[in-house]
Design a protein around this nucleic acid. Structure first.
Lengths: 238, 238
DNA sequence: TAAATAGTGTCTCTCAGACATTATCTT
DNA sequence: AAGATAATGTCTGAGAGACACTATTTA
């Protein structure tokens, strides 16, 4: 029984959540997209994932976030024979891929939304794997300090907010978002510098802090709370 | 390369979180405890886990909660050869094990605390697997409706609270706990009946509701909040 | 100046912790 | 009645959504 690793490498690019795919040059699923991956050799699973990451992107695994999130082993998931695949999720900023890796033949960034809407475009059970990877990423933004993994070393609050908005797929309130992320302990460390990334007031730059858990968490859904604020009608008499 | 499944089957028993272990009768690790498990055959991974569960406990997998939580594949984790193991977490009420399963030779419930304190008692890397399983269970009680999986079909709020207290390892405030679990939508459904399980007023019985996510969540840690209540000194003048 | 974005302040509702109190059951 | 447990109520502070407002930069 063969054991492989598959990687869902995500980034935020052009205001879209995108995933790195390779085009399959040989059957089965010739011409389709697939998540990068390969067989596990005489090494630990995480080492296999790091090696594949290096081969596909030329990037060093300990420079970005990478974590295991599932194992897939349906008997017929690979028509060539029994393969159990351990799936890894990697998050990275929108860097130009070194593409030096000899294996970087045909790596492309593709918007996740497009891929999930067309289940046929992904080989094997990679549609399911990608679905699970995206859900994992969305959930982890809520209560961990993972979001800066999508940003360069130094970033603004607005850039961080764009990460959340892109991954979750809906807009967040700028003022409240700032209050929360700057209030969470050890999440963001101000560098003291400012920058102008777009027309408007210069924004402060931050670096990610040492915290791993986000306390308090930032919830995706408005959790069916009736909402506060001024929605109640409290006009002057009636 | 062999692929196996290992099961961390947890229950709450005698006010302790306990795990089902089997005693190893043959080398390696002869005489040590191990998590039940076995090789994956011509079946899906979840089917292999369900089969092992059936063999070890005589219980049906679709009657209790079971979920995959990790894959372990260090090259030297099994001295007999390369084995990658997919780990599953199962939660069940404190039932008498049918033990009809022919394989139930030497299954024992052992308190998790005791096992985690003595890393040598568990074979292979099962100490690590159990550690991860327990952490997963603790985390899932926070924001999912999983806790009733540890209870019989009908249960009282106090029994549910005992589950939380046992898994998390600390006491919870009875009044506040009740307010939260009965307030969470679709979490608990009152059966209308009452029962007396201990000296005192009869308690209402509940059944688990259809919700999967617990909203709002119940947090383990007091999240370093300064705490509210009457701790402020507000005595009458001074 | 206007336009645009960064950042702060405030109001109100909800939630959680810390009690206090009432209700119901057994002995 | 006493003791025990179940269930409810209240006060307070923290956090979140909504929104108004101020600050700083470019065009």
């Amino acid at each position: 029984m063969a054991v492989a690793v598959d990687l869902a490498i995500l980034t935020v690019r052009d205001k879209q959540l995108q995933v790195l795919t390779v085009e399959r040059g040989t059957p089965p699923f010739q011409g389709a997209c697939a998540l990068p991956g390969g067989y596990v050799e005489d090494e630990d699973l995480s080492a296999a994932a790091a090696r594949e990451l290096q081969e596909e992107t030329g990037l060093d695994a300990d420079k970005l976030h990478i974590e295991q999130f599932g194992a897939y082993g349906a008997p017929d998931r690979d028509p060539r024979g029994r393969v159990v695949s351990i799936a890894y999720l990697a998050l990275m900023p929108d860097l130009p891929l070194p593409s030096a890796g000899g294996d970087a033949r045909s790596a492309h960034w593709i918007p996740v939304g497009k891929l999930l809407a067309e289940p046929e475009r992904l080989a094997f059970d990679h549609h399911q794997i990608l679905t699970d990877a995206v859900e994992r990423a969305r959930a982890k933004l809520e209560d961990t300090t993972l979001a800066p993994a999508f940003c360069p070393d130094e970033f603004t609050v607005a850039e961080l907010r764009e990460v959340y908005e892109t991954v979750w797929g809906h807009a967040l309130h700028p003022g409240n978002f700032r209050r929360k992320v700057t209030g969470a302990e050890d999440f963001l460390i101000p560098t003291g510098e400012r920058t102008i990334r777009s027309g408007g007031r210069a924004a402060a730059l931050y670096r990610r802090g040492p915290a791993e858990r986000l306390i308090p968490a930032i919830l995706r859904h408005h959790s069916a709370r009736s909402g506060a604020g001024r929605s109640q009608l409290r006009g002057p008499a009636r």
